[in-house]
Every structure is written in C-alpha cells, then in structure tokens.
Amino acid sequence: MLRTIKPKNARSKRVLQAREPKEVEDPRTAIFVKGTHSGEKVTGVMKELMALKRPNAISFSKKNAVRPFEDASSLEFWAQKNDASLFVVGQTTKKRPDGMVLVRMYDNRVLDMCELGVENWVSMNELKTPKATPGHKPLMHFASELFDTHPRFIQLKSMLMDFFSGEVLDSICLAGLEHVISVSLAPTPASMNSTADNLQGSASKASEGAESSLPKVHVRAYTIRLLASGTRTPRVELTPMGPSLDLVLRRNTEPDPEILKQAMKRPKLRKQDVEKGLGKKRKNIEVDEMGDVRGRIHVAKQDLGRLQTRKMKGLKGGQEESDDSDDESGDEEAAQSRRRKRRKGE
C-alpha cells in the first residue's frame, strides 16, 4: 500500500483532487507492461495498441516479472501509483506463446482479466495508407452473434469498449470521425451452436479443449472516408489503417459479482447537472441571464520591458552603435565629451 499523501502545496493538491472519484469518469488510462519475455510480435502489437490508445497510455519500458493470473499485487500497486485502471501485460512462454493479458481494475483492485494470444498481425507501418490523428475517438464495430450470447465474448466486448471508447461524451464533432476499430469473430463453429444451451457450463469449465474451440478474433482498424451521397447522410468508405490482429482467447477470470455490483453503480445525475456538462466541474464558464455562455480567461502579466515604444535616435543603446565600426565609436565619444563640455558651460 502507498501511504496517503497530504498535499503540501496547491499544485499537488490539485493533482490529488483530479485523482479523486468523479461522478462522470475520465477515460481509463492504460499501462503497457512487458513480462519477463515478450517476443517481438507482442512488443510490436503493444506498441501499436498504445499508438491507438494515446494520450491515455503509459508504457513501462523495462521487463517486469508479473504473472497477473497468479499474483496481481504489482498491478494493484502500479494502478494506484499511476492512477491507471487498465493493463496490457505482454508475455510469451512455451506453453502460451505471444500472450497479452488485458486487466481491468476497479478501485485499484483487479476486476477481471482476459488473456489473448496473438496469431498474426500486420503493423500500421506495413500498410501505406492514411492514418488517423492520435487522440481522436474511434468508432467501434463488433460483428458476431456471440457478442450477445457467449460470456467470454461479452466480457471481451466490454473490455475492448472500455479500452478504446469508455468515455461518456455529451457531443462529438462529426468531422473528427476518422477511424473505426472493428472486432469480428470467425464464423461460429458448429460445435458451439449445438451446445448453445449449456454455454454457461462450458465457459466455467474453461478447459483447454473449450478454449481452442472458441472462434478467432479479428481486430482491424480502418480509416473512414465520408463521401457525398446526395443526401444529408454521407456514404462511408473504409481503408485499412492497421494494426490488424488475429487473436485467440485463452485464460480469463470473471469479475467477482460483489465487486462488479459495486462497479456497476450509477450516479444519480440531476437534469440540470447533465445540461451543465455531466457533473464535471467546469471552471471559469458560466451562463448569464441572457443565456449566453461567458468564459473568463487568464492573461499572463505583460512584460513591459519588451514593449516597442516610439523609436528615437536618442534612445538608441550604445551597443548597437559600437557594432558599426571602431572609428565611428571614437567619433561618438568625442561628440559626447563635447556635449558635456557645452553643458558645463551653461
């Protein structure tokens, strides 16, 4: 446990206040951790995922001996230290090659985990196509009926949504819709269709056989082009942007029902608060009686020393003159001494 810090100045106080629980939460910050051995593939994938997650992403450059499924205490410590609530832990072993563990936290404790194995991947750089601006909100697309029925895929969908677009927005700029992250599953195998009735049982078993029978997950990122269609709604064209990942589901842990119940609690927002920016504190913005939004801005103190006033010959600094040439400066000195003499005479 970290000790509780009492802020000693206004800045650290503000930082700690920003970390306090809010009614409407900020987007989750993700930490990318490399395990003891994370192969080239997983390192590359994590780098690309981080590029998509930016600016809410922190990279741990060193190797860490973490095994999230066995001991999550380090993750809990890092979550508290960095104010992060998502982890991507890359680890490759002989038994589970090229694995990535997605960990979601609640109140600095592990809520649930899901291990994904990377089978194939194509980097962003290999596809010579336009890329999305970092920091723009992606659209999300999920395609398969299993996202509604199978507990493993319901969990995966929830985690990926939390990862890429977990933030509640009140409005979005339509011109800023640049890319989509599409998560599709391979067609559902017949074995799963037949056992659709006892899905719960097969999932809880979590045996190796059941995991291998789960369909592959294809994650693709596309850039969106909005073309004029003659109506108000544009026609959409997609271009592959990368990264393209083919993943398989491996181990997972379900959230503890008691903790999940707490995590699912919704705040009671008043209508007025919703209109005023969803319970978030908005500083220096107010609506006046006429209904106009008024903002106050802080203007830093003006440096009057640099102010360019009227240029006059007499106010010119001595340095500039000495730069011209030596004999001229000599003349100047002579002229000045003459002036002084004249003044004395007066």
Binding site: L139, M140, H141, S144, D148, S165, V168, S184
Partner: peptide
C-alpha cells in the same frame, strides 16, 4: 453514446 455498433448476424 459510446459510438459503437454491434452486428449480431451470424458470419
């Protein structure tokens, strides 16, 4: 609200 679409048609 989350800019998400889910396609529940079988592949």
């Amino acid at each position: 609200g989350f800019l998400t679409v889910t396609d529940l048609n079988p592949g």
